[in-house]
């Protein structure tokens, strides 16, 4: 299994390369990618430097252009495709049918991957993207059980990549409008979920804390509780008479426990989420997953996640918790 790691900037890219990534994925500095955060991502020169650095060490570079352009801004996505093609990157990670159609026509030799944002969860959907755009790999949404991943991979016309670690979307990526319902901006249209410009933290007189997204109370923390970022699906809400994490807890996906099953399922690549995270995060996660994949390849039967790996991943997880997510039926 290929290890695909996130890089929001050059230091993170170097951290990924140095710690054993087989490929890194990056985005340009605008809303053409799904981590459109202030101060993040690569301009032309940085992208050049990144590519030169990774190439000299035998590591591939993918560029994510995985948001959905509208009629008045389609040109920006076209330019992003042209720029990535000019850089001669190893693959483009695309989500929009129109952008894929353009890439296929203008740069037929380009290697296209289907982004998780394209929401393809079954073999017929993968066949659509393969037939019309010649994609060679697809990243599956984080909603399938291990058994379903195996069934999709077995019937897919293209290689399958899945998420191995990182923040967890509980919803099918690319089909979640919760963020724009609350703020007007979504991953599809703006390249970010629950964007920072709409976030407010307010400490109350009793030491408690409210976190809001465009005025909507996402969570309330008692004094002494650690307040998290108000990602809107990860707050505590009231349903019926109960207040609880009605949609999802603040937690990260960690697949070390099912790595042998994913490998046996024919998964070709393991992706790490987190272009918005620090170089220290990229270092730790890449190091651990590299060690895990190497151990798995050396002895598939005897593979057991090591305590040190789990502890290291726990430390860099959201809310210091991890889950197997949808890979395990009990979570669903």
């Amino acid at each position: 299994m290929e290890l695909v790691c996130p890089a929001g900037n050059l230091p993170s890219l170097k951290a990924a390369v140095e710690n054993g990534a087989d490929a890194v994925y990056i985005g340009f500095r605008d809303d053409t990618n799904a981590r459109h955060f202030a101060g993040l991502n690569f301009n032309d020169k940085r992208a050049h430097d990144a590519l030169a650095y990774a190439r000299s060490r035998g590591v591939k570079v993918f560029v994510a252009i995985n948001t959905f352009p509208q009629p008045d801004n389609f040109g920006r996505w076209r330019e992003a495709v042209d720029r990535a093609a000019g850089l001669n990157v190893d693959a483009l990670i695309l989500a929009d049918m129109g952008v894929m159609d353009y890439a296929r026509e203008r740069w037929p030799e380009l290697n296209l991957h289907l982004s998780v944002q394209a929401s393809a969860t079954n073999p017929d959907a993968l066949a659509f993207y393969h037939r019309h755009f010649g994609i060679r790999r697809a990243v599956l949404p984080r909603v399938l059980s291990v058994k379903q991943v195996a069934q999709v991979a077995a019937n897919s016309p293209v290689d399958v990549e899945v998420f191995g670690f990182g923040s967890l979307c509980v919803m099918v990526e690319g089909r979640c409008l919760l963020s724009s319902y609350a703020t007007g901006q979504s991953p599809n249209t703006f390249g970010a979920c629950s964007p920072g410009a709409h976030v407010k933290y307010r400490e109350n007189l009793d030491g408690s804390m409210d976190t809001r997204l465009n005025g909507v109370l996402i969570d309330h923390y008692e004094a002494g509780e650690n307040a998290g970022y108000p990602t809107l699906c990860k707050g505590r809400f009231r349903v019926g008479g109960n207040i609880y994490y009605a949609i999802e807890e603040p937690t990260s996906l960690n697949t070390l426990d099912v790595l042998p099953e994913l490998r046996a399922a024919g998964v070709k690549a393991l992706k790490v989420e987190g272009r918005q995270r620090s170089p220290a995060y990229v270092t730790e996660v890449t190091r651990v997953l590299r060690a895990a994949i190497d151990a798995l390849n050396a002895d598939p039967e005897g593979f057991r996640p090591q305590g040190e790996w789990m502890a290291a991943l726990q430390k860099v997880s959201e809310g210091a918790q991890t889950t197997l997510g949808a890979y395990h039926r009990s979570w669903q």
């Binding site: 009629p71 129109g98 393809a120 079954n122 959907a125 659509f128 037939r131 089909r175």
Partner: peptide
């Protein structure tokens, strides 16, 4: 309601409609 059904219908040469969850965000799509 998603691309799997689109592919299956198109391969069968049938006309189809697309639901609100199919992301058609630009004229090219």
């Amino acid at each position: 309601s998603e691309q799997g059904a689109i592919d299956y219908l198109a391969q069968a040469g049938k006309h189809f409609a697309s639901g609100p969850s199919v992301n058609i965000y630009n004229p090219r799509s």
